[in-house]
């Protein structure tokens, strides 16, 4: 959550600064298999976010002392490009990206059939090319598509969305201004089939009622986002069958 301010983020007619209703998502576009050298890849454009994800593995885990004899380890690396924000971001990992990498690894690990690959590791590189609030969720949503594209067995997709509180109103899918000047931010990721929550973080304050409202808004949105994920893979099949590869 950024600085609180008296900036008006919701107009009198109930619309948000970008003209959306409180329950509207920003436009989402996912393309699978965008990189030839990676085992799996996906590019997501979610509002102003542009995130490229590549997946390598399963392959033998290095260093060897990191190997788990029962399952594969999932190593997600979330990284923001220096040019992804208005002011140049100092390249390399920082506290925020290390934390996000950890929670994304855990979220993905709960969906991947890691038990099938003992002593292996699966690398997921999440590169934020352009940031516009909700990059961790955009990255996670694209990572699930990239993992499926890599042919790695998964129980289900991982699909995420954010909600938050802006001018005392609960809204879905915060934009950059709403994220910076709003009162709360709640990113959630779910396995759509089992409805199991695999990532939940909260910044700011929400009452119990507001939390329930935000959660149900996210769960509703997730079925729409999951359809976009599935369509991205189906579209790839159609291109391949038409000889586009």
């Amino acid at each position: 959550m950024g600085t609180q301010s008296d900036i008006k983020l919701i107009e009198e007619n109930g619309l948000r600064l970008d003209g959306r209703n409180p329950g509207d998502l920003r436009p989402i576009k996912i393309e699978a298999g965008v990189l030839n050298r990676a085992d799996g890849s996906a590019l997501i454009e979610w509002g102003g976010n542009k995130v490229l994800v590549s997946v390598y593995g399963p392959r033998e885990a290095y260093p060897k002392h990191n190997q788990d004899i029962n399952k594969a380890i999932v190593k997600a690396r979330y990284n923001m490009a220096a040019f992804s924000v208005d002011e140049r971001k100092r390249p390399g990992p920082d506290r925020r990206s290390i934390e996000i990498s950890k929670v994304l690894s855990e979220a993905l690990e709960s969906a991947i059939m890691v038990e099938q690959f003992p002593r292996a590791q699966i690398d997921v590189f999440i590169e934020v090319l352009q940031a516009d609030a909700g990059t961790r969720i955009a990255g996670l949503t694209a990572a699930a598509v990239a993992i499926a594209d890599a042919g790695i067995p998964m129980r289900d997709f991982v699909t995420g969305c954010t909600a938050g509180k802006v001018n005392d109103k609960v809204v879905l899918d915060l934009s950059k201004e709403e994220d910076n000047f709003g009162q709360a931010d709640l990113p959630i990721a779910i396995l759509p089939k089992s409805k199991k929550i695999v990532l939940l973080q909260m910044d700011g304050d929400l009452s119990l009622e507001e939390f329930d409202t935000a959660t149900s808004m996210i769960i509703n949105a997730i079925s729409r986002i999951n359809e976009i994920q599935r369509n991205a893979l189906s579209a790839k099949v159609k291109v391949d069958d038409a000889g586009g590869e």
Partner: peptide
């Protein structure tokens, strides 16, 4: 998914889940 019905014919693409 290219076909949502169970009992798919061979050569049908499916997605996780």
């Amino acid at each position: 998914m290219l076909s949502k019905q169970p009992g798919k014919t061979p050569d049908t693409y499916v997605l996780p889940g």
